[in-house]
Design a protein around this nucleic acid. Structure first.
Lengths: 155, 155
DNA sequence: TATTGTTATACTCTATAACTATA
DNA sequence: TATAGTTATAGAGTATAACAATA
């Protein structure tokens, strides 16, 4: 006997009821997506958060660490080592800001821009692959709904 | 001067480009939802994972820890203390299984069923609130899309 | 006084290996 | 040999407080 006879079993997954919650499905889907993304970005020696940070610095050269932390919704303190790593790899640089010696302007290097472009292409492929069960309309709808939740978040 | 003059600034959030990714939006939305859910379940002294586990045990009495771990996609080892807590609070019990002394049948107590029902009502209210910017159709579509991703996940 | 970057630290979550008892 | 539950532990991620330099 491979399973308890003490319960009815309609052959449904045990988490059937939880799948009625949007939040639970968000969590399970994100877990799948993140695992794949980690693999993809690993080939560039990037973590998801490093990729996000680099991508923003490339698009917004001159941004400082406080602004970057706010954009990524992470703590400034947790950004320090992350920027250290990207800086050590010469993907970006902390450059002085004229008139305010507290701040650094984060500037992407040529290597940083190049790696970012390659990583972005890989992430785009990753998204096309992991969401390939959705057609273009469905994927657009999903994106729109998620953005609506973020922009109209209550509180 | 409140921001660097070294960059163009169209007034857009710094993560504008990242919001083109479904995965990034999934992560940011889940973060918002989880923070709210943590507050809600905190009033029952439950974590999200404890609630999920209790909810499954209530619906599938007799399930064992290995099956529960598979359903929640967490490691068996990480389930032990979680079940310890729920058991210490007398919300469920590890009961012997006739014919296999390795296994426990997890059985909800009356208190566990009652707490679960109250928590489920609170979670339903939480979902209605945090997704209140979506109408019923939109919320149904979001749920359907997320479930489709899970059920048709490639690999 | 407030802000920026930084350090140190603690806490949670997750993953892995190894053990026991049972099958 | 394999399975169910358990223990211990290590790593990643995240949150908080306090500090130095500067505004």
């Amino acid at each position: 006997m491979t399973r308890s006879a003490a319960q009815a079993d309609a052959g449904l997954p045990a988490d059937t009821d939880l799948t009625g919650y949007v939040g639970y499905n968000l969590k399970r889907v994100l877990s799948l997506v993140q695992a794949d993304l980690t693999q993809v970005l690993g080939t560039f020696d990037l973590r998801a958060v490093s990729f996000s940070a680099l991508s923003i610095v490339v698009r917004r050269p001159g941004i400082n660490q406080t602004q970057l932390a706010e954009a990524l919704k992470i703590e400034r303190s947790n950004l320090v080592q992350l920027i250290d790593e990207l800086s050590d790899r010469a993907l970006l640089a902390r450059t002085p800001v004229a008139g305010d010696r507290r701040r650094y302007a984060l500037m992407p290097t040529t290597a940083g821009k190049t790696l970012c472009a390659r990583a972005e292409a890989a992430v785009a492929e990753h998204e096309a692959r992991v969401f390939s069960m959705l057609d273009a309309d469905e994927r657009g709808t999903l994106l729109a709904l998620l953005r609506k939740i973020r922009t109209e978040w209550p509180g």
